[in-house]
Computed example of a mutant assay.
Amino acid sequence: MNVELPLIAVIAIFGYFGIKIMRPPTWLIVVLLLGGFLLADTFLAPAIESGTKAGVDVVNETGK
């Protein structure tokens, strides 16, 4: 059984509870968001994308 949920909703839920539980400083949140945004436009982007797809396949068990 696969559950269809937009990735942005999952990220928003994890982000909300992560901020509520861990209480990180605001500057750290900004640095992580900006760093991730800038990293997506580097030579590492294909490796990140393939790793993400492999992780989704493992979770959804579609690699069999």
Rank of each mutant, 00 (worst) to 15 (best):
F14W: 10
L39P: 04
L28S: 12
T62F: 02
V30A: 13
V31C: 11
L7D: 02
A54M: 05
E49T: 00
G18P: 06
L32H: 04
V10A: 04
P6S: 06
I29L: 13
L28W: 11
I21Y: 15
I13D: 02
N60T: 07
G35S: 14
L33E: 03
L39Y: 00
G36M: 05
V30R: 13
G51Y: 11
I21G: 15
A12D: 04
I8T: 07
D57T: 10
L39S: 08
V30P: 13
N60E: 12
M1F: 04
G15S: 05
F43V: 06
L34A: 14
A45D: 03
D41A: 00
F14E: 10
L39R: 10
G51P: 05
L7M: 04
I13W: 01
L34Y: 12
F37N: 06
D41E: 05
A9C: 08
M1K: 14
L28V: 12
G55N: 10
E49C: 03
T26K: 15
T26E: 15
A9P: 05
G55F: 08
E4Q: 06
E49S: 04
T52I: 01
D57G: 15
T62W: 03
K64E: 12
L38Q: 08
F43H: 08
V3K: 00
G63K: 14
L5I: 01
L28N: 10
M22A: 15
K53M: 02
S50M: 11
P24W: 09
D41Q: 02
N60C: 09
Y16E: 04
V31G: 07
P6Q: 02
A45N: 02
A40I: 13
T62Y: 06
